[in-house]
């Protein structure tokens, strides 16, 4: 607060304070240089104002030491800022390994959020304080953007691929969730709340909410319903045990990391990457599965064991 004006949003996540410190540093640097320029101009403007028409100026063509000084000093400051900012960014972009995964689907103009336990929310996300949460996000139509100012996190939600972000809330309360990327007519209404609760309150909320199947259970149901099991359960197609996060050998000799993108592509466009030793017999499921169902299948595959080392890197 500054003369009754808030100057920053609430700090409600583990990374917020670090961002704010960098922000204060940058602000201070800005004010310092703006002050130097403004004061110098004012001083020169008054000190060297033209006093008579006949007055002539003293001609000075430049000064190499000065040029060097005002090249090197900003350069040093900029390098310091870059190093500070980038190391903070790298640290902030690595999710902790034990994060709880919540799936997010953006569509014009709402947020659909799914907890692993099967609770489904619209435009509201309940999370416990102090536990890292990882969001895996995709969009059903245009590019959206998941933005929670109080957490200082933001990431585009892009159709046709998965993006992710993570946060760990530090303070209970209700915080704005905005769509940051312009997404059409009701972009400004694509808002929601992130509700941070004490763990026991959260458990109570979770058990009191209407629960559908858990994500992996729903995925398992789809696995049978769409007859995936007839090949993938019988050896005609690659098995799913410990698949997620592993390196998969392809027919053309390459290997590929079995991450969300790869699994998604293999469901929608099965022939794009053929696993070595199998025939390209799988039909496409494009148009038959919703984004939500694909996420459920992914959750199911992940539940069958994951090679954590690789998954953690993403």
């Amino acid at each position: 607060m500054w003369f009754g004006f808030p100057i920053r949003p609430e700090q409600a996540s583990t990374i917020a304070e670090g961002i704010d410190h960098l922000y204060y540093f940058l602000t201070a640097m800005d004010l310092f240089f703006t002050a130097i320029i403004f004061l110098t101009i004012f001083y020169f403007a008054i000190r060297y104002r033209r006093r008579s028409k006949a007055e002539t100026a003293e001609q000075i063509e430049g000064s190499l030491p000065l040029e060097v000084a005002w090249t090197v000093i900003p350069l040093v400051l900029v390098v310091v800022t870059f190093v500070w900012s980038s190391s903070l960014f790298i640290r902030n972009s690595r999710p902790p390994t034990a994060a709880t995964e919540v799936f997010v689907i953006g569509k014009q103009w709402m947020w659909q959020l799914q907890h692993p336990e099967g609770v489904r929310e619209i435009n509201e996300l309940h999370v416990p304080v102090g536990r890292p949460i990882k969001l895996t996000m995709t969009s059903e139509d245009v590019i959206h953007d998941f933005f929670v100012p109080a957490f200082r996190v933001k990431k585009d939600v892009v159709p046709g691929r998965y993006t992710s972000l993570w946060f760990q809330a530090t303070k209970t309360g209700s915080y704005h969730l905005f769509c940051g990327q312009y997404c059409g007519v009701n972009h400004a209404l694509m808002r929601g709340e992130v509700v941070v609760m004490e763990p026991q309150d959260y458990e109570r909320w979770l058990s009191g909410s209407k629960k559908a199947e858990t994500m992996p259970a729903a995925g398992a149901r789809l696995y049978e319903q769409y007859a995936c099991i007839t090949c993938h359960g019988t050896g005609k197609g690659p098995a799913f045990n410990d698949l997620y996060g592993s390196q998969v050998k392809l027919q053309d000799g390459k290997t590929v990391l079995a991450d969300e993108e790869y699994l998604r592509e293999s469901i929608l466009f099965p022939s794009a990457k053929i696993v070595a030793g199998y025939d390209p017999i799988m039909p496409t499921f494009k148009g038959q599965l919703t984004e939500e169902q694909i996420l459920q299948l992914l959750a199911y595959i992940k539940s069958l064991g994951a090679t954590e080392r690789k998954a953690a890197q993403e």
Binding site: G18, I19, L22, Y23, L26, M29, D30, F33, T34, I37, F38, I41, A45, V78, T81, F82, W84, S85, S86, L88, F89, N92, D145, F147, P149, R152, V153, K154, G180, Q181, Y182
Partner: peptide
């Protein structure tokens, strides 16, 4: 011209917030 120098200085310096990865994440599209 003097107005330009002042405002450009402020505009240019605030660009640093957006060139900086960590702060841009928060400030992007705001």
């Amino acid at each position: 011209a003097l107005g330009f120098i002042g405002l450009f200085t402020m505009g240019g310096l605030t660009g640093l917030f957006l060139a900086s990865l960590a702060t841009d994440i928060h400030l992007h599209d705001t």
